[in-house]
Design a protein around this nucleic acid. Structure first.
Lengths: 251, 251
DNA sequence: CGCTGCCTTGATCTTCTTCAAAACGTGTGG
DNA sequence: CCACACGTTTTGAAGAAGATCAAGGCAGCG
């Protein structure tokens, strides 16, 4: 039943060794916190960040470690998750370029509440938590934007709660796909292509279900021509149909 | 089978008509945003807030309305919820004294994303969103604390996601009860008393399940002597047992 | 080749939802 | 003060959705 490989997408391997100065500035300017800043301010702030590369699979931060730094993804895909002490993990989110994680408000003895690992080759910018606090007080617009950005994330998280509470597994999977497409999607031949190495398992974990259920849901969607998948990518062929499956998806 | 009414708790009806100046200051000083401020600063900020009373059942803000104000609960219990367009509601949270809701970062054309109604007689302080933004830029410590407070709420919301995704209905109900006890609980004869008019329906909505399932879970807990309930109150008789039911409840 | 992950599919079994109906508790008006 | 009516809670039984268990298939890779 290999009806799947009919669209052989070649993933462009646009991975870079380390971030260029220009890229760093471009990425930082796009981070919600810094969006209201002048080019000069961004340049100045850029100097306070350091960049570092991570190989696929390597750990960037670990849940429970002292929360010392704030990270921004410059290039690549980062997996943000939390572990239950019964051992299994819950995927909080998949982050792409311009998204942040780590310590925002790191007062005294704070600890990371999530773990993050590189899911592809990643270049991440980071800054000491204390230094970020300084920026927050220096530039009031950064403070405003931070509050705004956090409000938005909070809203999204609560939206997720609503999804989990009220809708079927299939609906939640559709929701997750749309969410990822919005963040990581690139247009490709009229479809939206999600270029992230997402296993069924990870998809399941994001939607709060099991591998098998996720697999079945994805298969069903493939049969209906709503999506196409392959190794390391998912393409949304019929976004409207997906939206029908995911009630109340907005934005 | 009326084994329930063996502990006739009389709820002290400590409702006040409107907030006194002293109370206002005490409440504001306890709001996360303002915790780092001097007494004088709090006094100054206090002047920018107005207070207003709400009768039980009255709407304070409505989802979708222009987000013009930030509210702080001074007295009473507020129900924060969101509506699906299929009509049913999801309880986001129950708020007590010192908690906030409404517009935090209200830039331009923002809208409230939740509705809030008074679940008891309520006195709420509020401030214009623009005025709050001004405070945010005036006092950098408020900005820092806001970021911190939002991070915490975000963390809680993601925790809720994890609960919904991974645990049984009973575990989630236990979790909700512990959560409410932490926020609204008052010690009473060695137990923790939650004085909030919570229907099974509302409890169910917070735990992402149905009225019936919530009812069954609560009954079971009562039979095991873990909790006692009555009209308008729930008492946690055996918090340790509850904690056993709710895996990973922390804080 | 033969691993080793990952994905898929089927069958069973548990949990929760749904539907339905009865019992309670409170407040009301006669 | 009683009786009725309403909203909430409880309980039961049937059904569905999804978890779990088990097995086989299909890559890519050493």
């Amino acid at each position: 039943m290999a009806v799947r490989r009919n669209i052989p997408i070649i993933i462009p391997e646009i991975e870079v060794e380390s971030c260029t100065i220009g890229l760093r500035e471009k990425v930082l300017a796009g981070v919600p916190f810094f969006q209201a800043l002048s080019v000069d301010s961004v340049r100045s702030i850029n100097r306070r960040f350091v960049d570092r590369g991570f190989e696929p699979g390597s750990t960037i931060i670990r849940e429970g470690d002292p929360a010392e730094r704030l990270f921004v993804v410059a290039l690549g895909i980062v997996k943000l998750f939390r572990t239950t002490d019964s051992g299994d993990t819950v995927l909080i989110d998949i982050l792409g370029s311009g998204e942040y994680f780590g310590s925002l408000a790191g007062y005294g003895p704070a600890r990371y509440e999530d773990s993050a690992i590189a899911r592809s080759r990643v270049c991440a910018l980071s800054i000491d938590a204390v230094a970020f606090r300084r920026i927050l007080t220096e530039y009031s617009s950064v403070a405003l934007k931070s509050v705004e950005a956090l409000s938005n994330r909070l809203h999204l998280a609560q939206e997720m709660v609503r999804q989990l509470a009220g809708y079927s597994a299939e609906a939640r999977i559709a929701y997750v796909l749309l969410h990822l497409a919005d963040k990581l999607g690139t247009p490709w031949k009229g479809n939206t292509l999600i270029q992230a190495p997402l296993t069924r398992d990870e998809l399941a974990s994001m939607a709060g279900t099991t591998t098998e259920t996720a697999s079945r849901a994805v298969s069903r969607m493939q049969k209906q021509g709503i999506i196409t998948t392959g190794r390391g990518w998912i393409a949304l062929a019929d976004e409207d149909a997906l939206r029908d499956l995911a009630p109340e998806y907005s934005r």
